[in-house]
């Protein structure tokens, strides 16, 4: 099989130039020369005896259901506000007159693009929806494969731009969290309190923040791109930041899922309250806090 019957490594043969000028295949071996038994195995073919199909199935269900919910919620175009709560799907709330459909779509492309190009979600949906591969050492449905080379998948490389936009979004979302603490009496006076929605929005945003902080692109920009920390300008702090983000990054998958659940739940909660299905419980109230500072409350709202 091997094209080099001498089984000899001749190093004089070919060293790639340091900067390869044009396309140069990694190995200079003809296609198909090193074919093993795994090539062209049918979909699902494996000797694995465990339940390898469970994970992709669970992922497909999870992503599918949450995705469906988000789409439905975005299309609804109503019930995204309840008092001082704003669904994260609709934040910041932009309602230009010329926009014909749900305001969610003005915003939602950012989180969708951010998650869609996220290194973790890529893994999840390539496995769950494209079966590329559905699990390790399991045959695949399609022969042809280009990975992330060329259109459209090369667009994944713009993940960092979605990260920039998502970071801006986070500022607005934190604003919503603050607002979720400030309730209004029927007489128009404000007071501070913690309701069910407050917690839901706070949790969703805290997890979104962790998710964003643990992003691979952020980790790269903060310090990962350096070869030598101690030789770089501000290398010390950058190394510190990089290693902290790296520690978070190890849990990126967890944050990806939890933040997704939490955001959907926050929207669901607000929506249900708005539709009158849930009654929003009030856990703590600080009634008189704003009595002395009406200006602040005015400014905040």
């Amino acid at each position: 099989m091997s094209p080099e019957p001498q089984r000899k490594l001749s190093s004089s043969a070919g060293v790639a130039p340091a900067a390869a000028p044009s396309y140069r295949p990694a190995t200079c071996t003809p296609p198909g020369a090193w074919r093993g038994a795994g090539y062209g195995q049918p979909f699902g073919a494996t000797e694995r005896t465990d339940t390898w199909w469970l994970m992709p199935l669970a992922q497909a269900l999870g992503l599918g259901l949450l995705g469906l919910y988000a789409t439905w919620a975005a299309f609804q175009g109503a019930h995204y506000e309840f008092g001082n709560y704003l669904s994260p799907f609709y934040s910041p709330l932009l309602k230009p007159a010329w926009w014909p459909i749900s305001p969610a779509f003005l915003i939602l492309w950012i989180p969708a693009g951010f998650r869609g190009t996220c290194y973790y979600y890529r893994k999840a949906y390539y496995r769950a929806f494209f079966a590329d591969p559905s699990a390790c050492a399991v045959g695949e449905p399609r022969k042809g494969y280009r990975g992330e080379v060329g259109f459209p998948w090369a667009i994944q490389n713009l993940h960092r731009y979605f990260m920039y936009f998502a970071s801006i979004l986070l500022v607005f979302l934190w604003w919503d969290v603050i607002r979720a603490f400030i309730f209004t009496d029927p007489d128009g006076s404000h007071y501070l309190a913690i309701g069910g929605g407050t917690l839901a929005i706070l949790a969703s945003n805290a997890l979104l923040t962790m998710y964003s902080l643990s992003c691979h692109s952020l980790r790269h920009l903060v310090g990962g791109k350096l070869d030598c920390f101690s030789c770089a300008v501000a290398g010390g702090p950058r190394h510190g930041a990089w290693s902290r983000l790296s520690a978070l990054n190890a849990h990126h998958m967890g944050y990806a899922w939890w933040s997704l659940f939490a955001v959907c739940f926050a929207d669901f909660y607000v929506r249900m309250c708005s539709m009158g299905v849930f009654h929003d419980p009030m856990f703590v109230t600080f009634r008189h806090l704003f009595d002395y500072a009406p200006k602040i409350s005015h400014f905040l709202l």
């Binding site: 790639a16 340091a18 044009s22 591969p133 990975g147 992330e148 998948w153």
Partner: peptide, 17 residues
């Protein structure tokens, strides 16, 4: 450049096997 054109890093779809 080697990574992109010769090593073909774009073929990896980070599925982590």
């Amino acid at each position: 450049p080697f990574l992109k054109d010769s090593a073909g890093i774009g073929f990896c779809n980070i599925t982590k096997c």
